[in-house]
Design a protein around this nucleic acid. Structure first.
Length: 487
DNA sequence: TACGCAATAT
DNA sequence: AATATTGCGT
């Protein structure tokens, strides 16, 4: 929690401010002409925040104690005592991308460093050219180390990057194939030199939506996103087809219950990579529209995506939550206004089905199981056969009729604070607290939260995923409308 | 034009 | 079944 979403989003000039741990040889015995001060200023000139160490033990200690204080380590190979340098490297490499530097031109030394885990070997003297791209290692590590394993300092980087690119991943990408980035790094000079900021785009994004001219139309408003992705290239412009080669393309997403891959209509089918390994789906990450190429237009409203949607709605307030605004807040380049409108429509309809009951006090409340009116069950979404409770799942205050008293509206914030007391939560596993637990509110990007806040609600996706907003309804003193809940 | 909603298509 | 589209009134 050190960092909030807001903070992250503010890291606009991302590479700048990168915290670098610089471990230099204590004595200048190596005789490289560059002094520690020079190296440091070299880094600082790139706007990196440098912390210099001359003692490997101290440096390690610092990393252990304040992992959040460093994003990357640059270690000078101590020619008179290589092992010292390597010791640090080996210990730190898992936590921080570690770059080795030396005046030594020997290929063996370089290899040794790389073999031991260094992400790169730079020959001294350093120069802005050599240093300006080191942040890529940070990003790479942030994205390629198992999601949860990402060190604390790298998480914010990851989130920041995601935010910058308007990605919608859930940050749990787990793939770990080193391959892609490494090569890329080598040529980064080329990339960066060109100052490619404008086209940052990332594979995941592309994956996400197979582009489509259809979408394009709306896309534009959102954002530019398309275009090149550094890692996987291709796709892009309208006409090009896109789909086919996804082979390497990453992650096929889909977590549990996948299945979407049904049709293989046009393009290639999903070859499960030749490697024979299973089809792999890493569950986590990016979920894009169905993995198959075909499905271009459908949006996969994953929990993450829905969460964003809900957050946007919350931020805007039900009343002002209109497709275009929601779309802006969501910052998901692959979505179109129509997609959002459609989802919003469903969202509202859902609430509509549910709320009414609440209002009509009691009479509608059906009690426990079995009683569901045959008609349409409220909560078409999370219906899991069980008697779902009648609490306002998607409910948002706005809907209540003037006279009616909205079922408690606890200040949104508090809900955020702690997990809502779901005492009233039905025993059904389906309605899992987890889903609700998702931090819909916490980092609310917008600084404020509309007074009208929301109440919780959830979607249940075919794949079992469930999302929802939390919110407090229940938490309150149960007194007031207990009646709202079916039991 | 953008919304919201309902009907309908995929 | 869940979305996307479409059409229509606002």
């Amino acid at each position: 929690m050190v960092i909030t979403a807001n903070d992250l989003s503010k890291w606009e000039n991302f590479p700048k401010g990168l915290k670098v741990l610089l471990l230099l040889n204590g004595c200048d015995s190596d005789g490289d002409g560059s002094s520690a001060a020079e190296t440091r200023s070299e880094l600082e000139s790139m706007d990196y925040i440098v912390t210099t160490f001359t003692d490997e033990t101290e440096a390690l200690s610092a990393v252990v104690k304040n992992p959040e204080s460093f994003h990357i380590a640059i270690v000078e190979v101590n020619m008179s005592a290589e092992s010292e340098s390597f010791k640090f490297l080996e210990a730190a490499k898992d936590v921080l991308p570690t770059i080795m530097i030396s005046t030594d031109h020997c290929i063996t030394t370089t290899m040794k460093c790389i073999a031991l885990g260094a992400v790169e070997f730079l020959q001294k003297p350093l120069s802005p050219e050599k240093l300006k791209n080191i942040w890529q290692h940070v990003v790479h590590k942030a994205f390629n180390d198992g999601g949860s394993n990402v060190s604390i300092s790298l998480k914010p980087v990851k989130e920041s990057v995601v935010s910058m690119l308007h990605l919608e991943t859930d940050m749990t990408i787990e793939e770990k194939d080193p391959a892609p980035s490494t090569p890329q790094l080598k040529q980064d000079s080329r990339l960066l030199d060109g100052d490619c900021q404008e086209n940052i785009n990332f594979s995941m994004e592309n994956v996400n939506s197979s582009t489509e001219k259809d979408n394009m139309e709306d896309h534009q408003d959102i954002g530019e996103s398309k275009s090149v992705d550094t890692t996987n290239r291709k796709l892009d412009d309208d006409k090009v087809v896109v789909k086919e080669e996804r082979e390497d393309s990453e992650k096929e997403e889909e977590g549990e219950t996948g299945d979407l891959i049904s049709e293989k209509t046009d393009s290639v089918d999903i070859h499960k990579k030749e490697d024979g390994t299973k089809p792999i789906n890493k569950s986590s990450g990016i979920k894009n529209v169905s993995g198959n190429k075909t499905s271009r237009k459908k949006v996969d409203w994953t929990p993450e995506l829905h969460k964003k949607f809900v957050q946007a709605v919350e931020q805007l307030g039900v009343d002002q939550a209109i497709p275009s605004r929601i779309l802006e807040l969501m910052k998901v380049g692959t979505l179109t206004r129509h997609n959002v409108a459609s989802h919003l429509q469903k969202f509202r309809q859902h609430r509509k089905n549910i709320l009414p009951k609440d209002d009509h006090n009691h009479r509608w409340i059906q009690s426990r199981e079995n009683h569901r009116p045959s008609q349409r069950n409220y909560n078409g979404f999370q219906q899991q056969h069980r008697p779902v409770m009648a609490y306002p799942v998607w409910g948002l205050p706005g809907v209540y009729p003037p006279g009616a008293i909205p079922p408690l509206w606890p200040p949104p914030l508090q809900s955020i604070g702690q997990p809502p007391p779901w005492h009233w939560k039905p025993p059904y596993p389906t309605v899992n607290g987890n889903a609700w637990g998702c931090p819909v509110g916490p980092p609310v990007t917008g600084s404020y939260i509309t007074p009208s806040n929301t109440t919780g609600g959830g979607f249940q996706y075919p794949n079992g995923a469930e999302t929802g907003f939390k919110i407090m309804p229940a938490s309150q003193p149960v007194s007031v409308n207990t009646s709202l809940f079916s039991f």
